[in-house]
């Protein structure tokens, strides 16, 4: 694949970020993150040469990111009886605006970084920063515990962009490890969500302020 195709697909990833920022239903956001994961896995799979290892990794990533984690999360929302509303701390439009600013900032930062010439023609590094920041903005700007999980998943996607696109298929073990971590994290968050919702009636992180100190 040439650089312009990769850039077009990566812009799609950024657009999905914006979409998640603006979506007001939790289930939509979960599905969008899953879609983002699948797109990234496909991109990584087709930009490399065809190997057995790469195929196995592709299948594992698509199954975990695209199906297992979203299904777990959707199940958790239903099980814990969480309302579909996002409960924004910062409104949807301002969040999108901040996200746009973060995209600008990530392009600015990556221009300053000393990159290899082969990486300078693609927008891998700026999109990595943009996705990472979007995940963080989602964590900051939304109140519910489950949106934080979505934010972490977005950040993981960002890390995956960097690791798969810049270093190639060498990162098989590392990527599998990260995936396992994310899976375990989602499991734990699911259990926690359940407990938070039974203790505080709603999965609202704002209620956790009483736990400080």
């Amino acid at each position: 694949m040439n650089a312009s195709t990769i850039n077009t697909i990566l812009l799609l990833v950024v657009l999905i970020n914006m979409f998640i920022m603006g979506s007001n239903r939790i289930i939509t956001a979960i599905k969008a993150v899953a879609l983002q994961g699948i797109i990234l896995a496909l991109l990584a799979f087709f930009s490399e040469e065809f190997t057995t290892k790469g195929t196995i990794l592709f299948i594992i990533i698509v199954s975990i990111k695209g199906f297992i984690i979203p299904l777990l999360l959707i199940h958790a929302t239903k099980f814990a009886n969480i309302n579909q509303e996002m409960k924004p701390l910062i409104g949807y439009m301002p969040t999108m605006f901040i996200d746009a600013l973060s995209v600008f900032l990530s392009f600015f930062i990556s221009q300053k970084l000393p990159l290899l010439p082969s990486h300078q023609e693609t927008i891998i590094v700026p999109v990595f920063f943009a996705t990472l920041m979007s995940g963080m903005i989602l964590i900051i700007a939304r109140q519910k515990a489950i949106t934080q999980v979505i934010g972490y998943l977005m950040m993981e996607n960002g890390v995956y962009i960097l690791s798969s696109m810049l270093t190639g298929s060498v990162t098989f073990l590392a990527e599998i490890g990260v995936l396992l971590d994310v899976l375990a994290g989602v499991f734990i968050m699911g259990i926690m969500l359940n407990h938070i919702s039974t203790t505080f009636e709603k999965g609202d992180v704002g209620k956790l302020t009483s736990l400080r100190e």
Binding site: M136, I139, I140, R142, V205, G206, L208, T209, R212, E213
Partner: peptide, 10 residues
């Protein structure tokens, strides 16, 4: 140090 999680992430 206000205990709200989002702020710490910020």
């Amino acid at each position: 140090h206000n205990g709200y999680m989002g702020i710490y992430v910020l």
